[in-house]
């Protein structure tokens, strides 16, 4: 394991396109469910324990070396929103480009060839983590962090929220991110059938509403 490689992969400056996505925060702001730092914290906590856990386990599974085709099918089955499936594959394609430049590997090449329109982002992330010499738990940490980091950054832009407050939310969630990463990695060690499928009705619902907006700041 190389801790520095994990920092490179998890860095918001890693050119994988994540900054264009709000993780459902833009729709939650418009619906009046995300107005301040307290709302951001409960939004991020809910996202972390649902889609965050599910995505982290998919990434951990890929880092563990589980069959990426089965993982991609498992991601499809766990993503009922067509808008979120499309966003995940688009992000997977962008991450793939950056990951192949950063950590060239035959496994990344094979995954890119098998999914020319993009594999699901957590599957690409786990495969990239593996190429970077990282293990399942590190891959899961990376996903857990981006699950809450994305909405927090978006909330600063959408609400003009104090960035110190947004960062404090992330710091308070750190112990739960660790728990989620640990659970995700443990599940991934038991194979594709044991992967969690935790999900969030409002994220699925509002993703489709958001995709229908004529004008929006974020892609999802």
């Amino acid at each position: 394991m190389t801790l520095s490689a994990l920092l490179v992969l998890a860095d918001g400056r890693f050119p994988a396109g994540g900054h264009a996505h709000s993780g459902g925060a833009e729709a939650a702001v418009k619906a009046g469910r995300l107005k301040d730092a307290a709302d951001l914290e409960s939004f991020c906590r809910g996202r972390l324990h649902t889609t965050g856990l599910t995505s982290a386990a998919l990434a951990a599974g890929a880092a563990h070396g589980l069959d990426p085709y089965e993982l991609d099918a498992a991601a499809d089955a766990r993503t009922p929103s067509a808008a979120l499936r499309a966003a995940s594959r688009r992000l997977g394609r962008q991450l793939m480009r950056a990951a192949r430049a950063a950590w060239p590997s035959p496994e990344l090449d094979a995954l890119a060839a098998a999914f020319p329109r993009g594999a699901h982002q957590p599957v690409v992330l786990g495969t990239a983590a593996r190429a970077a010499g990282l293990g399942p738990e590190e891959a899961a940490h990376c996903v857990a962090y981006e699950t809450v980091g994305g909405p927090a950054t978006a909330a600063v832009r959408l609400l003009s929220l104090d960035p110190y407050q947004a960062t404090a939310v992330l710091a308070r969630l750190a112990p739960e991110m660790d728990q989620v990463a640990e659970r995700a990695a443990a599940a991934a060690g038991q194979g594709v059938d044991a992967l969690p499928a935790a999900s969030a009705p409002l994220l699925d619902l509002t993703a489709e509403q958001h995709a229908a907006w004529p004008v929006r700041l974020f892609a999802s």
Binding site: A28, L34, R45, R47, H49, T50, A77, P201
Partner: peptide
């Protein structure tokens, strides 16, 4: 494949703006 979890024994945030609001 979908799991939903709500209530006092569920993981945190189930009643927040991402899950049930």
């Amino acid at each position: 494949d979908q799991e939903l979890s709500f209530g006092p024994g569920a993981p945190g945030g189930w009643d927040g703006g991402a899950v049930l609001g």
